[in-house]
Amino acid sequence: MARRTKAEAAATREALIDAAEEMFMEHGVARTSLEQIARHAGMTRGAVYWHFKNKADLFHAMLERVHMPFQNLFDEVDDSVADNCPLEAIRQACIKGFARAEQPRNKRVHFILMYRCEFFSDIDPQAMQEEISQDINSVLLKYFQLAAENRQLASLSPEAATDLFYATLTGLFNGWLRHPELYSLEARGTQMVENLLHLLRNA
């Protein structure tokens, strides 16, 4: 019985996060109340407070369901590739990231963070975006530094290569997030990453 109760509680929590995600997408985070989320999930507001301290806690739980540290994508690349061919590791990790970003839930949550969330109370979307940005930059820099040590990077410094690559990824992702119907992120992203790495690679 206890095991069933625990499973039911987990299912209730997931249902509330699902409802919050849908309400945030439709109305925006600031304009969505816990009461609306509870009603949308077919539950009471008390059920929300049983699982979450407040709306910020619920919002962060929604983000945690999809957030993956950038390094995790590189951890899925073969170790020999990551160690000996860091530029190829960047290519493979980015392609994995594009495919993951195109999953419906990932796309919705990132859209909410970028375009449906204002700063208020305990929710600071700019700080969250900056944390993601720093994570991506630090990992890219590590692999571009390794490429430079292996004499695989052309004339740019690892720092300059990181800035250029990150700017490309950011522009590509934000453009796709606003208009995902225009192109496949994975298809266009793969082409852009391969073209850019070709320019950055030491001949």
Rank of each mutant, 00 (worst) to 15 (best):
A2F: 09
R3Q: 15
R4T: 14
T5W: 09
K6P: 03
A9H: 02
A10D: 15
A11D: 08
T12I: 12
A15M: 04
L16W: 00
I17P: 03
A19E: 01
F24A: 14
H27V: 11
G28S: 03
T32H: 04
S33F: 02
Q36P: 10
A38C: 08
R39A: 05
R39M: 08
H40G: 09
G42D: 00
T44P: 03
V48T: 03
V48F: 03
V48K: 02
Y49C: 15
K53M: 08
D57Q: 03
H60N: 11
A61S: 14
A61D: 02
A61K: 09
V66R: 08
H67I: 15
H67Y: 15
P69G: 06
Q71A: 12
N72P: 10
L73G: 11
F74W: 09
V77A: 06
V77D: 05
V77I: 15
V81K: 02
A82M: 09
E88H: 10
I90Y: 05
Q92K: 15
A93L: 13
R100L: 14
N106W: 13
K107E: 12
V109K: 04
M114L: 11
R116E: 02
C117E: 01
F120Y: 13
S121R: 12
D122P: 02
P125G: 06
Q126N: 06
Q126R: 04
A127F: 11
A127G: 14
M128T: 14
Q129A: 11
V139R: 07
V139A: 02
A147G: 02
A148N: 04
A148Y: 01
E149M: 10
N150D: 05
Q152H: 03
L153T: 00
S157H: 05
Y166W: 09
Y166T: 05
A167Q: 04
F173Y: 14
W176M: 09
R178G: 02
R178K: 08
H179W: 05
L182N: 07
Y183A: 09
S184R: 01
A187C: 03
R188E: 08
M192H: 00
V193Q: 00
E194T: 08
N195S: 12
R201C: 09
N202I: 00
